[in-house]
Amino acid sequence: MWPDGYAKRVLPEVDSTNAEAARIAPDLAGPEWILGLRQTAGRGRRGRAWVNPEGNFTATLVMRPLEAPDVIALRSFVASLALYDAFAQVTGTDAGLSLKWPNDVLLNGGKVAGILLEGSPGYLAIGIGVNLIAAPDASQVEAGAVSPVSLLAETGVRLTPEAFLTALAQAYAKWERTFTTFGFAPVREAWLSRAARLGETITARTTQQETVGVFETVDAEGNLVLKTPKARVAIAAADVFF
């Protein structure tokens, strides 16, 4: 069942669902999901290309939230939890699922989905890509990054993008209600209970530096907290390597 209060548009082809979100944002009456069945100019974090074979999932939720920018950005965790629940629903199990800070979903240790938040004053676009039926070759990802996997190859479950969108929209609406009613605390607790490599040594890499430490927690602002030999370090944005 489609959640109340959310509009939906399905596009046979689009350059980027996040780009479409920017175009329609000024006229939004409420939150709206945009599903692109074929995307010609998809992108991931830091402007990387997002490979999207036909049958995979590319969608964006565009909304006009009223909170401060630092609070709005915490919806990456809301979206992660929604993806986790949607995968559990469509497969009948959460076995093998985990969440990788800041915005990836892992299945059996491989990346099955990613999230990209974009926006400007007045709107937020939550872009989501899911390898439903096919994953990029490992040679197409950054050295040392988690290898991509597909839902079909890992579970045998074959879904249409439209079917997955319904499951995701339902799950997102639930976590959005939790977030707007109770704040980040319950979202953070739920995210940490599903976190990949919590308590283990990981590497956080930015364009300027690399930090190696034990993944201790995610703090109340959504920062990754690593315990290094010298100090506890809170990291606002980085790529994480295991």
Rank of each mutant, 00 (worst) to 15 (best):
L192R: 02
V187C: 04
T178G: 03
E210Q: 12
G110L: 10
P161T: 08
R158W: 02
N131D: 05
T228H: 05
V187T: 13
E221R: 14
S193P: 00
T203M: 13
A167H: 02
L152S: 14
T217E: 15
G119R: 00
A163I: 12
A190W: 07
A195R: 06
L192W: 01
G213K: 11
L198E: 01
A185L: 13
L198C: 06
K111R: 08
G156N: 06
Q170V: 08
L117D: 11
A190N: 10
D219W: 11
F182W: 09
T155Q: 06
P186W: 10
R158V: 06
N223A: 14
T155I: 03
R197L: 14
G119K: 08
A134F: 09
E142T: 10
E210F: 01
L165G: 10
G156C: 02
G222M: 10
Q140T: 13
G129W: 11
S147K: 13
E154W: 00
T207N: 13
F182H: 15
L198V: 00
V225K: 06
T178Q: 13
L168S: 06
D137T: 09
K230Y: 09
I126A: 12
E176Q: 14
S120T: 01
W191M: 00
L198T: 03
E176S: 09
E216W: 04
D219K: 12
V157M: 05
A145N: 00
A169P: 06
F184C: 11
V149A: 12
Y172M: 03
S139P: 03
T181R: 15
Y123G: 00
A143Q: 05
E162Q: 08
S150K: 09
L168Y: 02
E210P: 03
A113L: 07
I133F: 10
E216M: 11
Q209G: 04
K230F: 01
V212R: 15
L159V: 05
Q208I: 13
G199Y: 00
I128D: 10
P148R: 03
Y172A: 10
S147N: 09
L117Y: 01
N131E: 01
E162A: 04
W191R: 11
T180A: 01
R158I: 02
P229F: 05
T217S: 15
E216I: 08
A134I: 04
E162W: 09
V141D: 06
V214G: 07
L159F: 08
G129M: 08
E142G: 00
L226D: 07
E200F: 09
R177T: 13
T181D: 15
I128E: 12
L192I: 06
I128H: 09
K227C: 14
G129Q: 07
E189N: 12
V149L: 07
L132K: 08
D219N: 15
V149R: 09
Y123N: 07
T160W: 03
L132W: 04
Q140R: 14
A145H: 01
A204F: 15
G222C: 12
G144M: 04
A135G: 09
